[in-house]
Amino acid sequence: MSREHGPVDPGRLLTALGIEGRVLAEAVHAAPLEAPVPACPGWSLGEVARHVGSVYRLVRRRLADGRTPEDWQRDPEPGRPLHEFLETGLAELLDELAAHEPQERADTWWPADPTYGFWRRRMLHETLIHRVDVEQASGADPRGVPDDLAIDGIDEALTLWFGHKLPMLGLTGTKAGSVGVRTGAHSWIARAGPETTEAWRCSAEEAEAADDVVTAKPAQVYLWLWGRASLTSVTVRGVHDQAAQLWALLRLATR
């Protein structure tokens, strides 16, 4: 059975994916491809663009075939610019996603949500985070992150990457404790330690009772959780150990 939908309607996620994908392609077209990406050590702006364009094709093939393909396009054709590689991959992925209802069953890597809706959300945040990477690498003025998409991305970072990907990789924290994450009217708990790695949506009161409590505007929390903002970009109440551990564990989950 699929998990309940996240904070944002699946139709909004698909529309936002189209918008963010086009913005990303435009930013890549205007930027120096050799520029280093601060949040992805060792990667250039061009490598980020190549990665996203490749993932678009991988996911479309996975959805069409019902399994992860062994053979899929990882680079543009010779002489084809990277922004066109992004635009073509995005268009094909959008067509595949739009042809299916979000609750329709699909092959995913999260047993809690084997639906097309999973990929609407996953590919939006893949695109949005790497759009931020391109802006940071090129020095372009940041376009910002809408509050509703930031809240959805916070939920994905905590429930999918922290609560599922870390256990799947066998990675745990060193010190048991909890972090409450609060922004706007939304709250979460993330609990980590040698025995447990889990996260869930909760009440404001439950979040406030955690060992550390992280608060900031939605976009700030979103970028902080995804490693695109520094540890000091959010407000932390408590001893700070658990918030720092959460931030470090998410770097391992999303690298």
Rank of each mutant, 00 (worst) to 15 (best):
M1S: 13
S2E: 09
R3W: 13
D9C: 04
P10H: 03
R12I: 02
A16G: 05
G18Q: 05
I19E: 05
I19H: 06
E20N: 04
A25E: 03
E26A: 14
A27R: 07
A30T: 10
E34V: 13
A35I: 02
V37K: 01
P38W: 06
A39R: 11
C40H: 06
P41Q: 13
L45Y: 01
L45K: 00
V48Q: 14
V48P: 02
V48Y: 00
H51A: 09
V52S: 01
V52A: 03
R57F: 08
V59P: 02
D65Q: 15
G66P: 11
G66F: 00
R67D: 08
T68H: 03
P69E: 02
P76V: 00
L82K: 10
E84G: 03
E84K: 07
F85C: 00
L86K: 01
T88H: 11
G89H: 01
L90P: 00
E92Y: 02
L93H: 04
L94D: 08
E96P: 11
L97H: 10
E101T: 15
P102W: 05
R105Y: 05
A112P: 11
P114S: 10
P114T: 09
T115W: 04
Y116I: 14
R120I: 06
R121V: 01
L124G: 10
H125M: 07
T127M: 08
I129G: 08
V132R: 04
V134L: 06
Q136T: 12
A137W: 01
A137M: 08
G139M: 10
D141G: 08
P142T: 09
R143L: 14
G144H: 04
V145P: 07
L149N: 09
D155W: 13
E156R: 04
G163V: 03
K165P: 00
K165D: 02
L166P: 07
L166T: 07
L169M: 13
G170V: 09
G180I: 13
R182L: 14
R182F: 02
G184V: 15
A185W: 07
H186F: 08
H186A: 12
S187K: 02
E195P: 05
W200F: 12
S203Q: 03
S203V: 03
S203K: 03
E205A: 13
E205K: 09
A207G: 11
E208P: 00
D211T: 10
V214S: 08
V214T: 12
T215W: 02
K217T: 14
A219I: 08
Q220H: 11
Y222N: 10
W226K: 14
R228A: 13
A229R: 09
L231E: 09
S233I: 12
R237K: 11
R237M: 08
A244M: 11
L246Y: 00
W247Q: 07
R251E: 13
